[in-house]
Simulated assay, not measured.
Amino acid sequence: MTVTIIGAGSIGQAVAGIAVASGHAVQILARDAGKAAQAAASSGAASGTIGDPIAGDVVVLAVPYPAVGEVLGVYAGTLAGKVLVDVTNPLDFSTFDSLVVPADGSAAAVIQALVPEARVVKAFNTTFAATLATRAVGGTTTTVLIAGDDADAKTAVAAVVEGGGLIAVDAGSLRRARELESLGFLQLTLAATEKIGWTGGFALVK
Rank of each mutant, 00 (worst) to 15 (best):
V71K: 11
V71I: 14
V71L: 05
L72R: 06
L72V: 04
L72A: 06
G73L: 04
G73S: 04
V74S: 09
V74L: 13
Y75I: 05
Y75S: 15
Y75D: 12
A76F: 14
A76L: 10
A76Q: 15
A76P: 13
G77C: 05
G77I: 03
T78K: 08
T78V: 12
T78F: 12
T78E: 14
T78D: 11
L79D: 05
L79F: 13
A80G: 13
A80W: 14
A80L: 09
K82Y: 06
K82D: 03
K82P: 03
K82Q: 05
V83G: 02
V83H: 04
V83R: 05
L84S: 01
V85Q: 00
V85L: 08
V85S: 06
V85D: 01
D86V: 01
T88H: 07
T88D: 14
T88S: 09
T88W: 02
T88L: 10
N89W: 04
N89F: 14
N89S: 14
P90E: 08
P90S: 08
P90L: 09
P90W: 02
P90R: 09
D92H: 02
D92S: 11
D92P: 13
D92A: 09
D92W: 09
F93L: 10
F93H: 11
F93C: 14
T95V: 03
T95W: 06
T95M: 06
T95S: 14
F96I: 15
F96D: 14
F96Y: 13
F96T: 14
D97H: 10
D97C: 11
S98M: 07
S98Y: 10
S98D: 12
S98V: 11
L99V: 09
L99G: 09
L99E: 09
L99A: 07
V101G: 09
V101E: 07
V101H: 02
V101M: 10
A103T: 11
A103S: 15
A103Q: 11
D104P: 14
D104A: 13
D104H: 06
G105E: 08
S106Q: 13
S106F: 00
A107Q: 03
A108R: 04
V110E: 13
V110D: 11
I111T: 04
I111A: 07
Q112C: 08
Q112P: 15
A113E: 05
A113Y: 02
L114A: 12
L114M: 10
L114S: 15
L114I: 03
V115I: 07
V115S: 05
P116A: 02
E117F: 05
E117A: 13
A118C: 05
A118W: 00
R119G: 02
R119P: 00
V120I: 06
V120G: 01
V121H: 02
V121S: 01
V121P: 04
V121D: 01
K122T: 06
K122A: 02
A123I: 01
A123P: 02
A123G: 01
A123F: 00
F124K: 03
F124E: 03
F124V: 04
